[in-house]
Amino acid sequence: MTASVSRSTRQRDVIARVLQDAEGPLAVNDVLDRARLDLPALGVATVYRTLKLLTEQGRIHPVTLDGETRYEPSGKGHHHHFSCTACGRVFTLHTCPVSLPRGTVYPGGFVIEAHEVTLYGRCPDCAGASSA
């Protein structure tokens, strides 16, 4: 790996911070929009290259929700997601709504190794707006 690939850049730092500060995994366009608040001239190609590099470095990882790839920081431990059906934002849930420890034998002989859960509904902002 060359020094130019691994060195820190302002763009890379801003994109990493955007992902770190997000309430949940972000799509490429969300990363671009938020990063442009600090770097108005930032291009989508730079975002894609940076997301690829950060993924290769293990700093972030992709999450696929409803066929769309989003990105979030690595090292968050076991967690799940909530997808708002009104505004489209995705939030990280820090409690697990399912009690299926690794090694559990599910009816029919299925041995659980891991699980992913995405809950769908309205986030607090959208739920409040519809009741007002």
Rank of each mutant, 00 (worst) to 15 (best):
E23M: 12
P124A: 14
P62F: 09
Y71V: 01
A114D: 14
L37Y: 07
R89E: 11
T92C: 08
G77R: 02
D21R: 11
P40F: 05
E23H: 11
C123E: 05
D66S: 13
S83N: 02
L54D: 01
A114C: 02
L37F: 09
T50L: 10
V111A: 12
A86G: 08
G109D: 08
S6R: 15
V18H: 03
R89Q: 11
R122D: 02
C96T: 03
E56V: 04
R102E: 12
T46K: 09
V98M: 09
D125W: 12
V47K: 03
S83G: 02
L19Y: 04
C87Y: 12
F82C: 08
P40T: 02
H78D: 12
A16T: 01
R17F: 03
E23P: 00
G128D: 11
T118Y: 08
V111R: 15
A16Y: 00
H80V: 03
G43F: 00
S131P: 00
A114Y: 07
K76Y: 06
G43V: 00
E72V: 05
G77K: 04
A3L: 13
T9N: 08
L65D: 02
G67P: 02
G67W: 10
S131G: 06
C126K: 05
F82R: 03
H115A: 01
R122V: 01
V90Q: 06
G88Y: 13
V31K: 12
L119A: 14
T2P: 00
R49K: 11
C84F: 10
T104N: 05
R70G: 08
Y106C: 01
A41N: 06
D33I: 03
V47T: 02
V98C: 01
A86T: 15
I60E: 01
P101I: 02
A132Y: 10
H115Y: 14
A114W: 14
V90I: 13
G88C: 11
P25E: 10
T104Q: 12
C126M: 07
D66C: 04
G77H: 06
D66L: 14
L93V: 09
P124R: 15
E113A: 13
H78Y: 10
P25T: 03
R17I: 02
R34E: 11
N29L: 04
G88W: 14
M1R: 11
I112R: 13
E23C: 06
T9E: 07
S83H: 13
V105K: 13
A132I: 09
L39E: 04
T118R: 09
P124S: 13
